[in-house]
């Protein structure tokens, strides 16, 4: 399993890998929003947590279809399925690799880019925690969606449609943590609920993803 994680991370940073794709998209969206909204600092402060979270969510969505599609195309997925690794473990490792290359960089980038959106000083720490704790759920749910749509030509649209509704709870609680933090309110309740969604996704969705993969590999 460690070998698979190491291989996926190596592939992500090699030429043609997906590392940086989500991060670059996030950077572009957050930098463009102030141009679109206009230079009203109060307005930017107000919308900063929501914009940062929506941008992070879309950035995570961007690289989802790569999770299984590349291994499917070159046959590696069938070989992994016949290897001693359990498919549940493969799905979990795929999600972890996606998070390490997308979610984790976003957690560090979001507070840094909060500056562009005039985020209040109290907002940086809760924003960091909310993205750090919320993005594993995004990666895991996305892996499930990718497992459902693997092998479909142009499955990207279907993948987005399947995954976006499942992303909504994470978005609500994640943005709520960031908003409350930015306004200086207590934010532990939404943070705990966010952690609950992440923990539940990590516990259940590898099993669902493996079942979806088995059906698609037939």
């Amino acid at each position: 399993m460690i070998a698979l994680l190491r291989r996926d991370l190596t592939l992500a940073v090699r030429a043609g890998g997906g590392f940086g794709l989500g991060l670059a998209f996030f950077l572009i969206v957050v930098i463009l929003v102030p141009f679109g909204v206009g230079p009203e600092r109060e307005l930017l402060t107000q919308i900063a947590p929501g914009i940062l979270w929506v941008a992070a969510l879309l950035a995570a969505l961007l690289s989802l279809d790569r999770i299984f599609a590349l291994d499917w195309e070159d046959g590696a997925l069938a070989l992994l399925a016949t290897s001693p690794l359990p498919l549940e473990g493969v799905a979990l490792i795929k999600a972890v690799a996606h998070w390490l290359t997308t979610g984790l960089p976003l957690a560090f980038a979001a507070p840094a880019l909060g500056f562009f959106l005039n985020l209040t000083p109290e907002g940086y720490v809760p924003l960091f925690w909310s993205v750090l704790i919320g993005t594993p759920a995004l990666s895991m749910i996305g892996t499930f969606g990718a497992a459902l749509t693997v092998g479909l030509r142009r499955g990207g649209l279907l993948l987005s449609l399947l995954v976006l509704p499942l992303y909504v709870p994470t978005l609500i609680f994640g943005a709520e943590v960031a908003r409350r933090g930015a306004e200086g309110l207590a934010y532990s309740t939404p943070l705990i609920l966010l952690a609950g969604i992440t923990a539940g996704s990590l516990a259940l969705l590898p099993i669902a993803s493996a079942a979806a993969l088995r059906v698609n590999l037939r």
Binding site: R7, R14, D74, G75, A76
Partner: peptide, 18 residues
């Protein structure tokens, strides 16, 4: 059992030994 299909599962971004 080991299975080998038409597709090799070889990653073109990695070296042969990797």
């Amino acid at each position: 059992a080991a299975y080998a299909s038409h597709a090799d599962g070889v990653k073109s971004a990695l070296t042969v030994s990797e």
